[in-house]
């Protein structure tokens, strides 16, 4: 579907076919719609720029997602760096006393899910989202993360376990707080 004679038509076709999957990956990874939209745009700009280097024998979808994963991890690093001061201490204080509008926007369980996912290490987060949300096969996930299939399986199970543990803890906390 790539026609270098016509980059514009190619990128439009690729974008239309893949933007939704990429966005869904990024919204789960970044945790908010604004960031996810910005990042999705960034992904397809990078796709466009690297299009001339894409070998037609490779899998276009996993290639796009490997770019998406890079963009997501880059973003995570930048955000972590700039938010060490902002987030670290004060948000923890704040999170117990939620702002009213937040309460209105998200239910408690959604809040818990969000916290649990955003506390997963980026590599675990990527595996969980790719397998669970984007429904990629083990093989595709391995291609995207550039690791072996067995590593994908191991990481996926660890990540799920970790996630469930976090959810259990948090759910208990909620119960304790409610008493």
């Amino acid at each position: 579907m790539i026609d270098l004679k016509n980059l514009e038509a190619s990128i439009a076709a690729i974008y239309n076919e893949h933007y939704l999957d990429v966005y869904r990956f990024l919204v789960c990874f970044s945790g908010n719609q604004n960031d996810a939209e910005d990042l999705t745009q960034e992904v397809f700009i990078r796709v466009l720029k690297s299009l001339p280097n894409f070998k037609s024998g490779n899998n276009l979808k996993t290639w796009i997602f490997s770019i998406a994963k890079h963009v997501a991890v880059d973003h995570f690093r930048k955000k972590r760096f700039t938010s060490v001061f902002k987030d670290g201490f004060f948000t923890k204080l704040e999170s117990n006393a939620k702002k009213p509008e937040e309460e209105f926007e998200s239910t408690e369980i959604e809040q818990i899910i969000h916290e649990a996912i955003s506390r997963l290490k980026p590599k675990y987060r990527a595996v969980v989202i790719l397998r669970g949300i984007n429904e990629m096969t083990v093989k595709e996930t391995a291609e995207i993360l550039q690791c072996t299939e067995s590593k994908v399986k191991v990481d996926y199970h660890r990540a799920l376990k970790d996630l469930k543990r976090k959810l259990n803890l948090d759910a208990k906390e909620v119960l304790v707080n409610a008493k």
Binding site: I11, Y15, L20, Y23, T40
Partner: peptide
């Protein structure tokens, strides 16, 4: 937990940007 669809404005404007860049 997360909005599963980007906004319509975003979808259209991104395609426009990509076409321009191409």
């Amino acid at each position: 937990t997360y909005p599963q669809n980007p906004s319509h404005d975003f979808i259209a404007s991104t395609e426009k940007i990509l076409r321009q860049k191409a």
